[in-house]
Design a protein around this nucleic acid. Structure first.
Length: 555
RNA sequence: GCGCCUGUAGCUCAGUUGGAUAGAGCAACGGACUUCUAAUCCGUAGGUCACAGGUUCGAAUCCUGUCAGGCGUACCA
């Protein structure tokens, strides 16, 4: 909020300088106001003079002087202005200029950090969408954490967000699932069977087969194979999906909608989509198959939608699905995919553009793979005894909070080493505790304050005016950055920005805590510091909430 | 071969969307608990931002090329 005021001031100075003819050109390139790295460069700095140098045909420092001369900084909190380096204008604020930030945090409460840049526009985030052919593993967990956090962050920025899970309950992999269970079923009843490598190998298939066997008895052996396989497929699919839902719920992730791929076939939307693009001349026949002209929209080659054997491809239903998404009225659609699917983006984007939707309205977040480790050693991905890399197993071992925080502690496009040993540790190696500890510590202070009869946690301007220590100023300035951090995370679809912000704020708080006492003999100072830590706690909580991590009162 | 991603301290990674003297954690070394939670803090040390050009007032950031790693390159999903 302080930064916006400085920006406004610079714009005013610019207008003034142009009106008075000190600056000839009305061509004003975009400039930024930012917080300089070095303290000696002030609280804020702008490059306005430098970016205007060429259009004004003047030396940057000369322009800086003109702008500085036109700044109306009465009552602005700006103590002094310096021109430095090649033409930076540096602003030095009086400490009291920062104190309203605390009041602002107190007033906004849980909504501090939210904004309205989304203006209620509808945006869909589709994530996880794991095939219902086996349990979720760590990689899906990362996708879940990223997708959920992105959705929360977008919602905080004023978008109308919908979380969706696309169920691939159609096609070959479901048929294979049915066959896998059926074969295990036959073995269950003592039949000799070859279990091909192409079938799903996990032990959960055996368990599902045993369940079907218990429910149907040996009578199922008399069924036509086709009927038995599809019965197994349906049963297994539903059962596995229920498990996925449960795992995600345990992870704190819930969806607004579960969308079935099969429903696109049942409702005729796949055929409709193919007919639509065929009419537009974008689908043609070659070698007995139907091809989509994705190459006309930036893809490297055309793609098959109906194979020569008459079966549709996954791409065909995906075209129908994305068409359907936009027909539902979303301004923007974001898919969260595993990074190994990156080759799929071009064709999907092409199909969307071919349907008359602007390319920018479709976004893909690629989530890189997770290397699961234990004490630095890779965890075996699967064994006969069962998988150790399932999301459920990881949550059981390290807890929801640690798992989510670690998944969000890297840029989503870089591979992540997830060490179970570290995630379980309650030390500084494990950043989630470092951040949560701030919340617990402050909560503890507040409990203590209540015991001492200090209930005055309301905003107290007079007391806040006593906050002038460097550590206090650093905390207030950091909190002032929170809203723009959230906004940037939303714009870039990068939830890790919030994670790093929280670690930064936590670090500032722990340093402050070790140097200063909040509850002192000076009642007024104590009240001021309570205002400060109360605000810190609020911001920590708001940030953790966006990441889907709890903010404990005690640890 | 082509395409996408990545390359920053010994290790794991940030880097405010082109800003001033490149940051944090871990590991190493030295310190701080009679106190609101030491799950913490303070200090020391650590760099050819893979490499070479280019763009401009200014590049870790943008462009081109080279090298290295990962992934993709189906009438699979």
């Amino acid at each position: 909020m302080i930064k916006e005021q400085i920006e406004k001031m610079v714009h005013q100075a610019l207008d003034e300088a142009r009106r008075s003819g000190q600056l000839p050109s009305s061509d004003v390139p975009a400039f930024v106001v930012e917080e300089p790295r070095a303290e000696a460069h002030g609280d804020f700095s702008t490059n306005a003079a430098m970016v205007m140098a060429s259009s004004q045909k003047m030396a940057p420092r000369k322009i800086a002087e003109i702008l500085a001369g036109n700044l109306r900084r009465q009552q602005s909190g700006v103590e002094r202005v310096e021109i430095a380096g090649p033409g930076f204008i540096n602003f030095f604020l009086r400490p009291e200029a920062w104190h309203p930030v605390l009041q602002h945090v107190a007033e906004r409460g849980d909504t501090f950090g939210s904004c309205d840049v989304g203006r209620g526009r509808r945006i869909q985030v589709e994530f996880v969408s794991s095939n219902p052919t086996g349990p979720l593993h760590v990689g899906h967990g990362r996708g879940a954490a990223v997708g959920d956090a992105v959705a929360s962050i977008l919602a905080a920025c004023g978008y109308d967000v919908q979380r969706e899970y696309y169920i691939n309950d159609s096609g070959r992999q479901i048929r294979t699932l049915g066959q896998s269970v059926y074969l295990r079923l036959l073995a269950h009843f003592g039949r000799e069977v070859d279990f091909p490598e192409t079938c799903y190998q996990g032990d959960y298939i055996r368990e599902l087969a045993a369940e079907v066997a218990a429910a149907e008895g040996e009578a199922i052996l008399q069924w036509p194979e086709e009927k038995a396989v599809s019965h197994c497929a349906r049963y297994a699919c539903e059962k596995i999906l229920a498990g996925i839902r449960r795992d995600l719920a345990d992870f704190g992730v819930t969806f607004d909608q579960w969308f079935s791929e099969q429903s696109l076939y049942d409702s005729g939307q796949v055929d409709e989509a193919i007919a639509f693009f065929r009419d537009k001349g974008l689908i043609y026949e070659k070698d007995g198959a139907l091809w989509f002209k994705t190459s006309a929209f930036g893809d490297e080659k055309d793609r098959v939608v109906v194979r020569s054997n008459g079966q549709t491809t996954y791409f065909a239903s995906d075209i129908a699905y994305h068409r359907e998404k936009f027909q539902r009225g979303f301004d923007r659609v974001i898919d969260v995919w595993g990074a190994d699917h990156h080759g799929y983006i071009a064709r999907m984007a092409a199909a969307i553009e071919a349907g008359g939707i602007e390319r920018e309205r479709f976004g893909v977040i690629l989530v890189q793979l997770v290397n699961l480790l234990r004490g630095g050693e890779p965890v075996a991905m699967s064994t006969r005894a069962g998988r150790f890399d399932t999301l459920a197993a990881v949550i059981r071992e390290v807890g929801r909070d640690a798992a989510r925080f670690i998944f969000l502690s890297r840029h989503h496009e870089s591979a992540l080493d997830f060490d179970l040993e570290v995630a379980r540790q309650k030390t500084n190696d494990n950043p989630v505790f470092y951040v949560q500890y701030v919340h617990a510590r402050i909560s503890s202070i507040l409990r203590k304050a209540r015991e001492q009869g200090m209930t005055g946690v309301a905003w107290d301007a007079e007391a806040a005016a006593l906050l002038t220590a460097p550590e206090e100023m650093a905390l207030i300035k950091a909190m002032d950055r929170f809203p723009e951090t959230v906004a940037a995370a939303a714009e870039m679809l990068e939830p890790h920005r919030v994670t790093y912000y929280l670690m930064d704020l936590a670090s500032l708080f722990h340093a402050y805590y070790n140097k200063h006492r909040v509850l002192t003999d000076d009642a007024r100072l104590s009240r001021g510091r309570l205002c400060l830590v109360l605000a810190v706690r609020q911001v920590i909580r708001n940030g953790l909430t966006l990441l889907g991590v709890s903010a404990p009162e005690k640890m």
